[in-house]
Design a protein around this nucleic acid. Structure first.
Length: 863
RNA sequence: GCCGAGGUGCUGGAAUUGGCAGACAGACACGGCUUAGAACCGUGUGCUCGAAAGGGCGUGUGGGUUCAACUCCCACCCUCGGCACCA
């Protein structure tokens, strides 16, 4: 018996797979294309940790399962190497990002091959490769040509540590998504992509894609569509501002008669014209300097200053004062709101703080008492609904609380007595008639801020000419190569490091007039690099890869991606941007589909000792030592076993040791048979023990079903169960022993390949005619190209079943009976009544009812 | 606050068209093997009453539906993840 030398075996097969190209489909001739993709990784400074291995393994197991089912699986790999993450690491260690990239790349690919994934290595790509970013720039140019890329001056997120602006999606809870530094607001001019133009379709298509509910909800919330109305308010009290208007957005037109003030965001363009006193001036200055975190998360008190102006109510004609307060956000709606303190909690808080008047216009009624957004207040549970409403309305009338629910209108002139629902429509009509209001849909989603004041990214392919303005770099001149400069560190003054690039790069001719012009020095967001890489993969080795971003024929064959697998942390980043870019390319007729990932599976998180792995906690688990000690097969199989794949789990050393034991046991069962003579004690022999046929077919069934649903942990449990039975029983024929190996192959590809090669010699050749194709093409017959085992439903069925016997729902006995007898009611009932437990419990009582579930259960009811 | 997921032995987890709760593993304990340890093999392990046979209880809490509830309904508590002054 040879020992299980996992290191030698794994290295041997990794090399062989690569040279034989068994995971390399022929992209143009494949008959059953299956594009299996794991989310684009970026090389981390520390290399891979088990969290990455977990993500890759799950995707790989699924890919292998598909491959064995006869699909031509394309499972490419590459590197998202451009971007702040890589650049920040370069800053830390003081190495040029381009040099560091080469080092990381080598190490990353080496680690990846050690896990034993079935990657299609030929098509790998790196985002910092000019052959790739040429087309990233091309996408920018297309966006510009169609008016979807534009420049505007705006108040944007600024990370003082990364020294660059960030998109809204990259600020999480007021801190930078990358470095966790609180972000600030800065008013600068930047490049944006008009993703908002696609808001409605991005929202509507969510219904058509097979994604986890969690991620779909996150995208819906992020897009945040709400229907409401705009109202124009005329400014009064100043000749200078005569005729000027302020527009507000509201979803609650029914409360409009309760407006007692109007509030502007400090960033609102009209604010400059309204502030005169130093108090207001100071307030605005201070508000603009606050970090997002201070403004949004930290401080809940409603600060603000009054102005000397008022606006006229479009319906009542009465005047209400204008205030400036930083709880109003410039980015949402119109940057101005109407204050209705009686019916909005924030307006209420603000009114109390600044002693503004409160006017009740909606009465709570029982129909709306428990409806969202209002939650009934239940100071006294004994009150009836009517009494509760009366209490609420009294409190609101006295200015003690805000009622945010719908109800019946009062003090609203002609609209008194209407319900909120009716009033919203009718008040809108009234406003439209006066041309002082209109229907409006507002989104939380904002345009994608695409420019970055950093070095390590694709230069934005734009040229600025003093005469002709902004011009796109002509497509035939792409790529705009990122110049190799020594001084590449971010500056922090808002200017890009490329400002210091050689003049020969910086200045060029205007594509329009030929005059002297200057290049854009900002680079694009890393998320643009990763928003289309899946389109490029099939085409990287195409003869047309130099002429087009993606070969139309290959794209038609392979896209959209059949299975996309990754973490949920990109719910509103990568996954939203990719949808947007794909949709845009579809509209420009480069693609015939709108959604890049019709099916997405999001895996859980691997934690350690109950907490998230993180550098600061120092509990990051590096796979390398485990691979050395136990092998990648044991690591992979353990990771897939420790919990449901969509939930993740806790990594433990003892667990992986246990999985190693399991693989050892499998190994041993196959050893004797690899000898020339079949060892008498071996568990692989000429014939299969009869008692193993049922369990084997049940195992095939269970593993097949589980794998198709990503239920890896229970699939492995089923194989363990089979192994336990097999060890107790006699032998499995070589043919059946090969079935078991194939079931295990997606999880432990190296060991099963090794055993497969040895056992093949023992097996009768005629039962495996299918292997010939792989021999012809790859020079040997790999288990990973073998067909997935099929089960026989009749063999999988149990010959004997157990019927549960209950008295009053409590277990009192069991009957073991042949499966074909188990459905015979009279017979089973007779047997059931003779069960000792049943006899005892039915001794003095009468059975009033008998429940009979055919083939499963008998329940005698005595009451 | 809102949205999503979840709460089952000592631990990870399994079981849902309502029908044997605790599969499979880890850990621990005892036994075998061993000079010894590791490895390996065997046995046991939800709580509780009982010498045993055999009972009772038990899936976050409290109620409900049902012959039967981890599974369905109502109310609540807790944990994790996401969003959050969104008008």
């Amino acid at each position: 018996m040879s020992i299980y030398d996992h290191r030698a075996i794994e290295q041997k097969w990794q090399k062989k797979w690569r040279t034989a190209g068994i995971y390399q489909p022929n992209l143009s001739s494949a008959r059953k294309p299956f594009y299996n993709l794991m989310m684009f990784p970026y090389p981390s400074a520390e290399g891979l940790h088990v969290g990455n291995v977990y993500a890759f393994t799950g995707a790989d197991v699924y890919g292998r399962f598909q491959r064995m089912q006869g699909k031509d699986v394309f499972q490419p790999i590459g590197l998202d190497g451009f971007g702040i993450h890589s650049e920040n690491y370069s800053i830390k260690i003081g190495k040029h990002p381009a040099q560091q990239a080469k080092i990381s790349e080598k190490r990353f690919y080496k680690q990846l091959s050690e896990i034993g994934n079935g990657f299609s290595w030929d098509q790998r790509l790196e985002t910092y490769d000019p052959d790739y970013y040429r087309w990233t720039q091309w996408i920018f140019v297309q966006m510009f040509k169609r008016g979807l890329a534009y420049r505007k001056k705006a108040s944007v997120n600024w990370c003082p540590s990364c020294k660059t602006v960030l998109a809204d999606e990259q600020v999480e809870g007021g801190v930078c998504e990358r470095c966790k530094t609180p972000t600030e607001r800065r008013a600068t001019e930047q490049w944006f992509f008009k993703i908002t133009e696609y808001a409605d379709r991005l929202l509507a298509n969510i219904e058509k894609i097979d994604w986890p509910e969690k991620i779909k909800t996150a995208q819906r919330n992020w897009i945040g569509r709400s229907e409401g109305a705009e109202i124009d308010w005329e400014i009064v009290g100043s000749k200078r501002l005569k005729g000027r208007r302020v527009t507000t957005f509201t979803t609650r037109l029914d409360t409009i008669f309760g407006a007692t003030f109007l509030v502007l965001s400090p960033e609102h363009p009209i604010v400059g014209d309204l502030i005169s006193g130093s108090e207001a001036h100071n307030y605005v200055q201070r508000a603009l300097l606050k970090t997002e975190q201070q403004r949004k998360v930290g401080e809940k008190e409603k600060t603000g200053v009054p102005t000397a102006y008022e606006v006229r109510h479009p319906l009542t004609g009465k005047c209400i004062p204008i205030w400036i307060a930083d709880f109003v956000l410039m980015e949402y709606g119109t940057g101005a709101i109407v204050g209705v303190p009686a019916h909005d909690q924030r307006d209420f808080d603000f009114a109390i703080e600044h002693k503004l008047s409160i006017k009740q216009v909606v009465l709570c009624n029982p129909q709306n008492l428990y409806k969202k957004p209002w939650k009934a207040f239940d100071v006294n549970k004994r009150l009836t609904d009517e009494e509760k409403c009366w209490e609420i309305n009294k409190e609101v009338r006295e200015g003690k609380m805000a009622y945010e629910g719908y109800g019946t209108l009062v003090s609203s002139e002609d609209f008194d007595g209407l319900s909120s629902e009716e009033a919203i429509g009718k008040i809108l009509l009234a406003l439209e008639k006066k041309r002082l209001g209109r229907k409006r849909v507002s989104y939380h989603l904002r345009d994608w801020l695409i420019s970055r004041q950093r070095y390590w990214g694709p230069p934005i392919p734009m040229i600025h000419c003093d005469e002709c303005g902004w011009q796109a770099v002509p497509e035939e001149e792409l790529p705009v190569i990122l110049p190799n400069v020594d001084d590449w560190q971010p500056t922090g003054d808002g200017r890009s490091p490329l400002e210091k690039a050689p003049k020969s790069w910086l200045y060029t001719k205007c594509p329009e007039c030929g005059g002297e012009a200057k290049r854009e020095t900002d680079v694009s967001d890393t998320f643009l690099d990763s928003s289309w890489y899946f389109l490029r993969y099939p085409s990287t080795r195409s003869a047309r890869s130099g002429q087009v971003p993606f070969d139309p024929e290959l794209t038609k064959k392979w896209l959209p991606v059949n299975a996309y697998i990754g973490g949920a942390e990109h719910a509103v980043l990568h996954l939203l941007y990719s949808r947007f870019v794909t949709m845009a390319l579809h509209d420009w007729e480069y693609l015939d589909f709108e959604e890049p990932f019709p099916f997405l599976f999001s895996h859980g998180l691997i934690i350690k000792d109950g907490v998230k792995m993180s550098k600061s906690r120092g509990n990051i688990v590096i796979p390398d030592d485990y691979i050395k000690k136990f092998g990648s097969d044991a690591l992979r199989t353990y990771l897939m076993f420790l919990g449901p794949y969509d939930r993740g789990g806790d990594f433990r050393d003892t667990g992986i040791a246990g999985m190693y034991r399991f693989l050892m046991r499998v190994w041993r069962l196959y050893q004797a048979s690899s000898d020339q003579r079949l060892d008498k004690k071996s568990k692989v022999g000429e014939k299969t023990d009869k008692r193993l046929v049922g369990p084997l077919h049940r195992t095939i069934k269970k593993v097949t079903n589980d794998l198709s649903k990503f239920r890896f942990n229970t699939a492995i449990a089923a194989m363990m169960e089979f192994l336990n039975v097999w060890e107790e029983r006699e032998r499995l024929s070589a043919k059946d022993a090969m079935i078991f190996l194939r079931l295990l192959a997606p999880f432990s590809p190296h060991m099963t390949e090794e055993l497969w090669q040895k056992i093949q010699r023992k097996a009768s050749p005629k039962s495996y005619a299918t292997g010939q194709v792989s021999v012809k093409r790859h020079g040997y017959r790999s288990i990973h190209l073998e067909p997935w085992p099929e089960f026989d439903e009749s063999l999988a069925a149990f010959e004997k079943v157990e019927i549960v016997v209950q008295v009053n729902g409590k277990l009192r006995g069991r009957i073991a009976i042949a499966a074909h007898e188990a459905t015979k009611k009279a017979k089973v009932l007779a047997l059931a009544q003779k069960q000792p437990g049943v006899v005892r419990f039915l001794a003095d009582v009468k059975v009033r009812k008998t429940i009979w579930v055919a083939g499963k259960l008998v329940n005698f009811v005595t009451f």
